[in-house]
Design a protein around this nucleic acid. Structure first.
Ligand SMILES: [Zn+2]
Ligand SMILES: [Zn+2]
Ligand SMILES: [Zn+2]
Ligand SMILES: [Zn+2]
Lengths: 131, 131
DNA sequence: GCTTGACCTTGTAGTGGCTACAAGGTGCAT
DNA sequence: ATGCACCTTGTAGCCACTACAAGGTCAAGC
C-alpha cells in the first residue's frame, strides 16, 4: 500500500504519517523501487491505534509508551491503566478549567446591555476601571 | 516602573511582557538612560486587561481587537459582544469535545480488570484487534 | 511519444502563547 | 572591588501537526 491509500484507510493524513515516522512512533516501512513507502496491514493497524489514542487526547509520549506496552502481551496491564487514569484526570481538570471560563464569560455577557463601549459591562469586567 | 515591578504588580511575567511588546499588543514604553523599560500605570492597566482576557481564554487576535475597541468609548459595543459570544461558543464546544473524551476514557478504564496486557480492555479498545 | 495529472519524495517553515536559555550591561550594597 | 539582583537582546524549544516548495514517478489518453 502506498501512503495515500493507507491514509484513506486509516483516516491519518499522508503528511501526518510521515511525521509519525520522523518522530519514531511508526516504523519506517520498506520502499518500492521508485522509493515510495510500501505499507502492510501491521502499519495500518498501528496508525489506527495512534489515531484512536489521539482522539482520546493521549499525548505522543503517552502513545509511544502505550505502543510499547501493547507488545508485551504477558506483562500486567497496571502501567497501561495508570497511564490512562492519569490522562483521564488531566482531561477532567481541563474540563473544570473550561467550565470556569464558560461561567465567567456567560455572566459577563449577560450583564451587557448593548450600550456604548464606555458603558459595556464586558469591557468593564476586563479593564481595571471596573468595580 | 521597571519591568520586574510591573510584572509583580500585574501578574504577567517579565518575559511575557516583552513578548506582548514584540507581538504589538502592548505599546513599547519609554526607556531610562540605561535602556531599561519604564512603565507607567497605563501600561500596567493594559497588562491586567490582557491577563484577564487570557484567563478567560481569549486568543491574542481577540485581545488585540478588544483593546482597540476598548478605546472607542462612544461606539456601540455590539462588536465586543459578538466577539465574546463567539468565544463562549468555542469554549462550550471545547468542553463538549473533552466530555466525550472523558466518558470514553472512563468506560475504557472501568472495563479493564487488571489482567495481562493481552487481556487488557484498554489496549483492546485502542487496537484493531478489538470487538 | 508526449503531455497531463495524480501521486510520491525530501526539506523547511509556520501555527499559538509563551518559556528557557545565553551572553552581556546596569545599579546598588558591602 | 566584588557580588548580586536586575535588566537587555536574540535565539531556540514546546506540541502536534500543517503547508508549502521543488522535484521525481507512473498510468492514461491523444
Ligand atoms: Zn496523557
Ligand atoms: Zn457590551
Ligand atoms: Zn475567541
Ligand atoms: Zn488493563
Amino acid at each position: 500500500m502506498k501512503i495515500g491509500e493507507v491514509a484513506r484507510k486509516t483516516g491519518v493524513k499522508a503528511e501526518t504519517i510521515r511525521f509519525y515516522e520522523r518522530e519514531g512512533i511508526l516504523n519506517a516501512p520498506p520502499r518500492t523501487r521508485s522509493n515510495y513507502r510500501d505499507y502492510g496491514p501491521a502499519e495500518a493497524a498501528t496508525l489506527v491505534f495512534i489515531r484512536r489514542a489521539r482522539d482520546l487526547g493521549f499525548s505522543m509520549p503517552d502513545i509511544r509508551e502505550l505502543l510499547e506496552l501493547s507488545n508485551e502481551d504477558d506483562r500486567s496491564c497496571a502501567a497501561v491503566d495508570s497511564l490512562a487514569r492519569a490522562h483521564l484526570d488531566q482531561v477532567k481538570r481541563k474540563i473544570a478549567a473550561l467550565q470556569v471560563m464558560r461561567d465567567e464569560l456567560s455572566r459577563m455577557i449577560a450583564k451587557c446591555e448593548q450600550d456604548t463601549i464606555s458603558e459595556c459591562r464586558i469591557i468593564d469586567t476586563l479593564a481595571v476601571r471596573d468595580r
